[in-house]
Write a protein that binds this DNA or RNA. Structure first.
Length: 475
RNA sequence: CGGGGCGUAGCGUAGCUUGGUAUCGCGUCUGCUUUGGGAGCAGAAGGCCGCUGGUUCAAAUCCAGUCGCCCCGACCA
């Protein structure tokens, strides 16, 4: 029996509308009265809080400290690093009036905080003893985007940005890759989202960075989504901002810098990787509600009492559980929690109580099974683990099935137009990237760490190929 | 910035061509019956028809302007 939610547009009919429907119907967000600035509703914000909680643990384990820097940058400071300014200036929001007076030095609402961190680091780094500095901040940033979509591209979005300073280049490079790896693991262990990872091309790297690395996911419609980045800055910013320290050998030196971030865009990835025509499908470890208990024939003697007992058992086992004892009908609740993507639903009615078990239904595939009451404490965490693995496997299969090696320009065209990653040998020239962008609206996503050549010429220009690179249409 | 679409009750909408008491569904409230896939019946409340101006005896409807949102492009960390 196929049960289909009629309030959500089918993914195959209109993927963009499906996405918007899910964002709204699952109560993740709402639009505000200013374009591009969304309201993160409690259910959506709770997912972000789970991500924060996971990452904060990882950041702290690796020696990072959380800080908070100001919302605004003076425009004179903002001008200091040339590439950086050129990259961000077109999309800054600038405050020009304060207290009714025109400001002499207008204030830029941070689009990212490199400048603020550099100015601060200049003040607090003087000696080799002050290094490394491993700071992270959770905040929102503003970038004046022309096209906006919930979670994927907003004028304001929430993120974390790590900014670190190191005595040596080697240490800074290690940091860059270490943080990329943490993001990769976050995808695997928390979000059940697999990535391709690697280094960005010159064209696609961050404004002011020496090297940018990224993790890239594949959405259900075949488009790529950049989910996190980690940048190695070298000493460029440090020199521009005059950050230096006195080393053990008595010489004045310039430190090496990194920055790295993930944003609420990850919510978009979760939605578009796992969601289906009945709504959101949340991976268990990031789900604000992991298990929902739906009582059947609530008015019947003993039903609610049993539900509460099960609730208590699961709560004690550390599971995020909700008992919905509202007076909606069970059918309504089934739909509601499916739209919201709750990984596991437990149905408890008179028949179950008689048989001493609950009926458990998985969101991801609607597979039903009964679980004895006295086995719940062990069985539910195990079930959640299985769901997580199942979802990761499914997403991984989809990713691998949609990476295609291409040898000719025609093949490249077919792959990126169909959706998915075209794995290609590339000469390294900017012109070839521009041509692909111009012809197919696809961009280079990243160059994987495993550079195993499979052809010797670039399919765009025919010149000698130097790099393995992924191309795809991207959000 | 270009193309398209849309602003009517908390939400979703009909009505607009051809001006004349504002339609329907969901939700909300009350009561009873229900409850294993978005319950049924009966009753009730709820409207500056985005905003401003114009035409008219009369505007949700026609005209002009304006504000905003969504989608698709272009642009873009």
């Amino acid at each position: 029996m196929e049960i289909k939610n009629k309030e959500i547009t089918s993914r195959d009919d209109d993927f963009a509308q499906w996405y918007t429907d899910v964002c709204k119907k699952a109560e993740l967000m709402d639009y505000s009265d200013v374009k591009g600035f969304i309201i993160y509703r409690p259910y959506g914000y709770a997912i972000w809080e789970e991500i924060q909680s996971y990452l904060n643990k990882e950041f702290k384990k690796t020696g990072h400290e959380n800080v908070y820097l100001p919302l605004v940058i003076s425009s004179s400071q903002f001008q200091k690093e040339k590439d950086h300014v050129q990259g961000f200036a077109p999309e800054t929001l600038i405050a020009t009036i304060g207290g009714g007076q025109t400001l002499d030095d207008p204030l830029i609402i941070r689009p990212t905080s490199e400048v603020l961190f550099c100015n601060h680091y200049k003040n607090i780094i003087h000696s080799y003893r002050d290094l490394p500095k491993l700071y992270n901040q959770w905040c929102s940033v503003v970038r004046w985007e022309k096209t906006t979509r919930p979670f994927l591209r907003g004028s304001e979005f929430l993120w974390q940005e790590g900014h670190t300073m190191h005595a040596t280049e080697v240490e800074a490079r290690e940091e860059t890759l270490k943080m990329l790896d943490i993001y990769d693991r976050c995808g695997k262990d928390l979000l059940a989202v697999p990535f391709v990872k690697g280094r960005k091309t010159e064209k696609e790297k961050f404004a002011g960075a020496k090297e940018t690395y990224s993790i890239e996911a594949l959405m259900h419609d075949g488009k790529a989504l950049q989910c996190g980045t980690s940048h190695y800055f070298g000493d460029g910013f440090a020199k521009a901002f005059g950050i230096n320290y006195l080393d053990k050998d008595g010489k004045i030196k310039t430190p090496f810098q990194t920055s790295w971030g993930v944003s609420t865009r990850l919510l978009g990835a979760i939605i578009m990787v796992h969601g289906d025509d009945n709504g959101l499908v949340l991976p268990p470890y990031v789900a604000p509600i992991q298990v929902v208990i739906v009582p059947i024939q609530m008015a019947k003697e003993g039903v609610l009492a049993k539900c509460r007992e099960v609730y208590k058992t699961l709560e004690d086992a550390g599971i995020r559980v909700k008992l919905d004892d509202s007076d909606h009908t069970p059918g309504w609740k089934f739909s509601e929690y499916e739209v919201k993507g709750v990984p596991l639903r437990l149905e408890i009615g008179p028949k179950d109580i008689e048989n001493n078990h609950v009926m458990a239904v998985r969101r991801v595939d609607r597979i039903k099974k009964t679980i004895d009451f006295d086995k719940l404490r062990e069985a539910i965490p195990q079930e959640l683990a299985e769901i997580h693995n199942e979802m990761y496997k499914k997403a991984m299969t989809n990713l691998l099935n949609n990476i295609t090696e291409v040898h000719t320009y025609e093949e490249l065209k077919n792959v990126v137009n169909k959706g998915g990653y075209a794995k290609m040998m590339w000469c390294g020239d900017r012109e070839c990237e521009d041509k692909i962008k111009n012809d197919f609206n696809a961009t280079s996503r990243c160059m994987p760490f495993d550079q195993i050549p499979f052809d010797d010429k670039c399919p765009v220009c025919g010149k000698k190929a130097k790099y393995v690179v992924y191309f795809a249409k991207a959000y």
